[in-house]
Design a protein around this nucleic acid. Structure first.
Length: 269
DNA sequence: TAGGCCATCTGGTCCT
DNA sequence: AGGACCAGATGGCCTA
């Protein structure tokens, strides 16, 4: 179904097997932790050189990279065992992180359906952020409307059933039907129109979009709807829908978007 | 084939 | 001391 899953399944799924293999391979080349630490500073041929070192050289190098205490306390076998343990923990940690990421994907609208490819991690995070912003805006708008209505006293003018606003809050976020039906163009997960340019200029976004254009994620809404955009289609009355989903978020939100997107992109590297 | 995405290993750092 | 977290490096898989 999704390539990522198959990709995962195609990888060695058993840490033990892989660890055994790797540990065996490394054992032939000495404790590779010392080699790895030089990977970023040395060309590949240096690694080859290291592998070609005599056992005495290997020992010397290994000993050089270890603290005195380690040298004293740990045999090579113990070091190897410790490495495997650490690797296993790290693997588990990353698996847990991926599980959490899947959980996040599950509650994200728009990311469901057989024809929709699994969101990448960065896309999941960025969409989640936009979604949270959208929900926050909706909440604020609801509060404001309720305040206006009960403040002015003419309760009869409050007709939630006529407003798409209630429809927005109806389906659960994870419900696939939450979005497209009532907002064919201005999807809540899309960056606000104002911030789209800034968002798209962020490395993180630009990295997302070209790769998976079929997602349509974070894509700017089509500009075919005039000054007000096509945001009011579901409202149906010809009047601007008061709900926040149909309005451009406040400028400060867009500002946060641009900054945070850049930060996210920067942080994620 | 290049680029994107990902899993894994690894060493360093910080925290408990 | 041990574990969690992080970031860099590496290599594999997939898609355009």
């Amino acid at each position: 179904m999704d390539s990522d899953t198959s990709r995962v399944s195609s990888r060695p799924s058993s840490p033990e097997v892989e660890d055994i293999f790797l540990s065996t391979a490394r054992k032939t080349g000495g404790f590779s932790g010392t080699v790895s630490s030089t990977q970023s500073d040395s060309p590949p041929e240096l690694s080859a050189d290291l592998r070609s070192l005599s056992s005495n050289d290997e020992d010397a190098l290994t000993m050089k990279m270890l603290s005195k205490k380690d040298r004293k306390l740990l045999s090579e076998h113990e070091l190897q065992t410790m490495r495997l343990k650490i690797n296993s923990r790290e693997r588990k940690r990353m698996h847990d992180l991926n599980i959490a990421m899947d959980g996040l994907r599950e509650v994200m609208p728009y990311a469901h359906g057989p024809s929709v490819r699994k969101l990448s991690k960065i896309a999941t995070l960025l969409l989640a952020r936009n979604y949270i912003l959208m929900l926050s805006n909706s909440l604020e708008e609801m509060k404001r409307l309720v305040g206006e209505i009960y403040g002015s006293g003419h309760h009869s003018s409050f007709h939630p059933s006529a407003c798409g606003t209630m429809a927005h809050t109806g389906p659960l976020p994870g419900h696939p039907a939450v979005s497209h039906a009532s907002h064919p163009v201005h999807h809540p997960l899309l960056p606000p129109p104002v911030s789209t340019a800034a968002s798209l200029s962020a490395p993180g976004i630009s990295a997302v979009n070209p790769v998976r254009p079929h997602h349509g994620l974070l894509k700017a809404p089509t500009a075919s709807a005039g000054p007000l955009g096509s945001s009011f289609q579901h409202w149906g009355t010809g009047m601007p829908c008061p709900c926040s989903m149909c309005q451009v978020p406040p400028a400060h939100v867009s500002g946060i978007n641009a900054v945070s997107m850049s930060r996210l992109a920067t942080d994620s590297k």
